[in-house]
């Protein structure tokens, strides 16, 4: 008899405890987002594809087309071309294209970059319908970001008049 009463009371109490848990969740803020209308903010360590850091001084990228990233990349993802800019002795990137479908997100390109020009983007909507959708033009992305920030847009550097020697490197020796 006492065991029955004890069981009943303990059982009833456990039911109330369960109700307490759910009502606490009921008043908690919602964690789901309405996806196409709202986007998640990714955590700072999230690794998307790489993109250029916008240098606060120049309002543009820091890439000098040294191609260290293209050579380091184990999957031959990166193609960089650069020119010597007129008036200075420095090279500057003209195109910087990723073939993201090959990327394994190892991050060696970011680590090896001597000018710290690269970072991981927080882009996570990377699905596409064809392989062409996976080709990411990092310069175009930089221009879009500059537009969004109200900065002057990146313009292709003027090559040195005389020896406009464009070095093209398809990262590593490619297709073999």
């Amino acid at each position: 008899m006492t065991a029955f009463i004890k069981d009943t009371l303990i059982g009833f109490w456990s039911l109330l405890a369960g109700l307490g848990v759910t009502i606490r969740y009921f008043v908690k803020p919602i964690v789901t987002v309405q996806y196409p209308r709202e986007k998640l903010t990714m955590s700072p360590r999230y690794r998307g594809h790489t993109e250029f850091i916008i240098d606060p001084e120049t309002g543009s990228h820091l890439c000098n087309a040294c191609e260290n990233c293209a050579r380091t990349c184990p999957s031959n993802v990166i193609s960089v071309t650069g020119v010597k800019v007129a008036g200075t002795k420095k090279k500057r990137a003209v195109t910087y294209v990723l073939d993201y479908s090959l990327c394994s997100l190892c991050g060696l390109c970011v680590e090896v970059c001597p000018t710290k020009a690269l970072k991981f983007s927080d882009e996570y909507r990377l699905a596409g319908f064809s392989r062409q959708d996976m080709i990411i033009d990092v310069i175009a992305r930089l221009q879009a970001q500059q537009r969004a920030l109200g900065l002057p847009e990146e313009v292709p550097p003027v090559p040195e008049a005389e020896e406009a020697k464009t070095e093209e490197t398809k990262g590593g020796e490619g297709e073999s």
Partner: peptide, 13 residues
């Protein structure tokens, strides 16, 4: 709506 909020979802929106 009740089920959604208990599960931290917004429910039909």
């Amino acid at each position: 709506k009740v089920s959604a909020h208990i599960q931290l979802r917004p429910g039909p929106m």
